[in-house]
Amino acid sequence: MNNPILYLIILILLTVSFIKDRAKTKKALLKAWKSFTNILPEVLSIMIFVGILLAILSPETISQLIGTQSGLLGVITALLVGSITLIPSFITFPLAATLLKAGAGYAQVAAFVSTLMSVGLITLPVEIKYFNKRTAILRNGFSFIVAILFTIVVWQVMN
């Protein structure tokens, strides 16, 4: 779903809601605003941190780390880099395809992509704020194990 469609849906829903019940709609918007401003400090600091991190850890650097013939060390690096960073998916996949072309194996790419999508050390403070420390750490820890499992399977099946 891209943004124009998302906003069109929201606009239609808001209009219908407003026609049906003005007070409820106002309450919904107030809740939305409170949730947004509540989480903004964390999200903003994550964005700036990721900006600095990705400037240093450029796609070229990443492909050097997990590129050609990087083997097990490349897999481990990919798991770690993927777990720490947060890259929008519209960058992740072209980057992953580039990594494959640059000579990385499917296993390294699997490790990178799966941890990028499910493990987020950078977003951990936000996750703790929404749930709690235990749940957030458990979810990330287990997701990391699933990523390793997926990497092993890809390594066996696709390399």
Partner: peptide, 18 residues
């Protein structure tokens, strides 16, 4: 983020009240 989050929060707000 600014394109995404506000939309999601409005959606959550609407679901919450309705």
């Amino acid at each position: 983020m600014l394109l995404f989050l506000p939309a999601i929060f409005i959606l959550v707000g609407l679901l919450d009240v309705w």
